[in-house]
Design a protein around this nucleic acid. Structure first.
Lengths: 199, 199
DNA sequence: GGTATATGTAAACGCTGTTGACCTGTCAAA
DNA sequence: TTTGACAGGTCAACAGCGTTTACATATACC
């Protein structure tokens, strides 16, 4: 099976499943990165890729499928969980605070900015558990690990949410190092075993 | 100026600016409560109110205006901030945990469930600061009050977010009283002055 | 060569929020 | 009483969305 996409060196866009799929995916990634998710329509992606609109649904099921595929390839969450357990909360705190300052990949920033979209929420919903809660829970271990992981996720997601909603001006006006310290303290408390008061 | 809306006792829906406005608003509130925001279209609201679609935009500017008006009337956040300062975090924690268990008004629950919608986010964006961050900040007092308020907001919003995204099954499987205690501890830490390590 | 099968295209579907042109009933002034 | 103004309401359309269906075409195999 010789695919034609490697035979033609002409100016016409390559045909063939893989080439077309890749072209759509690349266009979507670029547009999502520059414009956000909700601001980019299926037709815009198709036009940018030089491809018919229907092919998006043919190859990715729906616009949402494009997003899902991109996040699958790039990974929703960077590999913060692996590493020295003693500095886990430090790493998470630094990452979360960094996000407040607009750090992270361009795609991450773009998606943070349009994270209100129901599609995005649905895709995250499918990935957060498998990409964050479960690994974190397994990493922590113990009976209360799922609770600890959920609380950590709550703090991290909440910081993103505050940034989304009010720009986190108050937090960014604070000293960054101290803010990081405070967040880390919160995360440590999320992970603490509080059996003392219950016995 | 005798308005006709109080003269007719017949079966025809009352006309007149105020009556129509109220009917649209009431229909929107009911539908939003039962179906969520995104699932309800302008035409559905108009049909339910027995009114032409165009009147929604005439009286409320846009669909978003309806939501904004409803939230303005009902108040986005209940009066949790007022009261004994010593039990503030307790009240907030109980409220937040209660939300995890599906408590709160029907409208609150419905809007929580469709909080991904960009319209909803925009309206919240306009209200969160004035209805939560600013009062809380003023209530707390002190130089770091804005930071404390933002952190509190982050924890509260994060819990909502976790519930949205994974149903908060892990948190609800935990003992409710202990969960409330943990959340309160987090909130207390948000409000704590951590000047010790800095001098 | 003939034919099945992938690949791409064009046009529509049903829906959305929103708007502009048009009626219509009521009220005030002439 | 006639006229005009105007608020209130209706209708049909607009432009856009994501998605789908029917069709054309190019490729690969027998």
């Amino acid at each position: 099976m010789v695919r034609p996409e490697e035979t033609g060196g002409g100016s016409a866009p390559a045909r063939g499943r893989e080439a077309t799929r890749a072209r759509i995916l690349e266009s979507a990634r670029e547009l999502f990165t520059n414009e956000g998710y909700g601001a980019v329509s299926s037709r815009m992606i198709a036009a940018h890729a030089g491809v018919n609109v229907a092919l998006i649904n043919r190859y990715f099921g729906a616009k949402r499928g494009l997003l899902s595929e991109i996040l699958r390839e790039d990974g929703v969450f960077p590999g913060l969980i692996e590493g020295d357990p003693d500095t886990l909360t430090r790493r998470l705190a630094e990452h979360a605070v960094g996000r407040l300052y607009g750090e992270g990949t361009a795609l991450q920033r773009a998606l943070d900015h349009s994270s209100g979209d129901p599609d995005l929420q649905a895709v995250y919903e499918g990935r957060l558990k498998s990409a964050m809660l479960d690994p974190l829970s397994a990493y922590l271990g113990g009976d209360d690990a799922p609770v600890h992981a959920s609380l950590v996720a709550a703090v991290l997601l909440g910081l993103t949410r505050v940034r989304l909603i009010e720009g986190a001006t108050a937090l960014r006006a604070y000293d960054r190092a101290r803010l990081t310290g405070r967040v880390q303290a919160l995360l440590d408390l999320c992970l603490a075993d509080l059996e003392a008061d219950d016995g």
